[in-house]
Design a protein around this nucleic acid. Structure first.
Lengths: 231, 231
DNA sequence: TTCATAGTTCGATGATAGCCGAAGCATCGA
DNA sequence: TCGATGCTTCGGCTATCATCGAACTATGAA
């Protein structure tokens, strides 16, 4: 009766826990090697190899050979979007993973979620922005206010009007892994993280594959001045 | 290492072909009974019952008892969004279903896809809109031009500026099941379909569960005048 | 009450697919 | 050339789960 793209085959790829672990690990945007992904998923390299071949055949990931390493990355931002969407549904259904959040305190405090700031500081930032009425939130939808635009231009030199993107909202609520509350995603979230990096307030940890974001002492102070918890 | 919502469990639900058939059948927005869904998926009622229980437990669908029938609908528009996203990925990967498109000619000609017009006429409409420069398309992204806004206001009494929605784009390309080309989705696509219905140009088929859209003789003429193939 | 229809539960079956050990390529460094 | 490392292929084991027949419950109609 019905035809069209075969959704179920793709969904089944994501449906296996081991493969799903690999995919979520790749949501940082970084490319990871086959062994790293095997470890991430908690399986042996042989099994991982089989899974990676399937994910590649399904068009979810793309390989890049480099010496004797094979780096894999998500083949398209759309894939990350779908994974995010699934996260939202799973969260609403209360299907939380059994394993608890990241144990690493640094990872809980500040980390990269795809391309924007997550963790304690990410959640705190969105909270503060709502308190300052820079954004309005209703459920998953977030809207930048006029005051928010002014704030972005003056304090962070970000032109909010230039952030519109055909397939991606400017603002979006993204559920935080460790905090289980929302932080700011979307092109604005990404632009802000970029600015923090440019201003040398923060930098990604040098450890390959790490999602940790380290704030400098000065950066933390400036960040707190704008998005402090007390304010 | 990582925590958060358990994506894989949800994805595994969609990953089974039978369940996936049910879900796509529900993407029309209509509620369908357990038997209808069983037939839609091509399985026996017992098996369907088991699947439906799992989908309900996963929060993807919601039941509604009515006499001795149990109607099921998608629990949230977000679910439809994720399914659409998966369609997009599957289509790009070239993973088309083996079974060919709808055999029913009426279904090929005009039908409801979620809430907007699909089928031959849906594809034709988007084509014509591009020719008339009412929209600009680049890949999946579609943008309404100034002329397009004027056209919508004058010809169809649709205020395009009032169609902005936090979680849904105004225009979006949606891959057509039967034609395997794009038709117009998004809030504008939905608004246009609504208008066609209001103007009595077209109406959904009365058969329960049917996605067929019937155009009246007059409606077809008026539609062709605006979005004719020749023009 | 009796029958029919809608839907569910239970148990058995069978196929799919994830998993790992062992072995095989390929690349790098010495 | 040799060994070490990264990754893949192969074969067999196992567990999960979709499937259906049969029997059961619930609602509606005669």
């Amino acid at each position: 009766m019905k035809a069209g793209p075969d959704i179920s085959r793709i969904a089944a790829l994501v449906g296996d826990p081991a493969r799903c672990n690999m995919l979520t690990a790749l949501m940082t945007g970084r490319a990871l090697t086959a062994s790293e992904l095997a470890q991430e998923a908690g399986i042996t390299p042989q099994t991982a190899s089989s899974h990676l071949a399937k994910l590649e055949a399904g068009g979810l990931i793309e390989p890049e050979k480099q010496g004797r390493h094979r780096y894999y990355r998500l083949s398209d931002p759309d894939v990350a979007d779908v994974l995010e969407g699934l996260q939202g549904i799973a969260a609403r259904a209360g299907h939380m993973r059994v394993r608890t959040g990241p144990k690493d305190p640094a990872l809980r405090r500040a980390r990269i979620c795809y391309d924007h700031l997550a963790g304690d500081l990410g959640v705190q930032m969105l909270d503060s922005m709502k308190r300052q009425k820079l954004v309005r939130q209703s459920k998953q939808a977030i809207e930048l206010t006029g005051e928010g635009k002014r704030f972005m231009a003056e304090e962070l030199q970000i032109d909010a009007d230039a952030l519109t993107h055909p397939r991606r909202p400017v603002c979006k609520a993204c559920l935080d892994w460790s905090e289980r509350r929302h932080h700011l995603a979307g092109t604005l979230g990404a632009a802000m993280m970029d600015r923090f990096t440019e201003l040398k307030w923060a930098a990604r940890d040098i450890t390959p594959g790490s999602r940790v974001v380290n704030f400098s002492r000065n950066g933390e102070k400036r960040f707190a001045a704008l998005f402090g918890a007390g304010e």
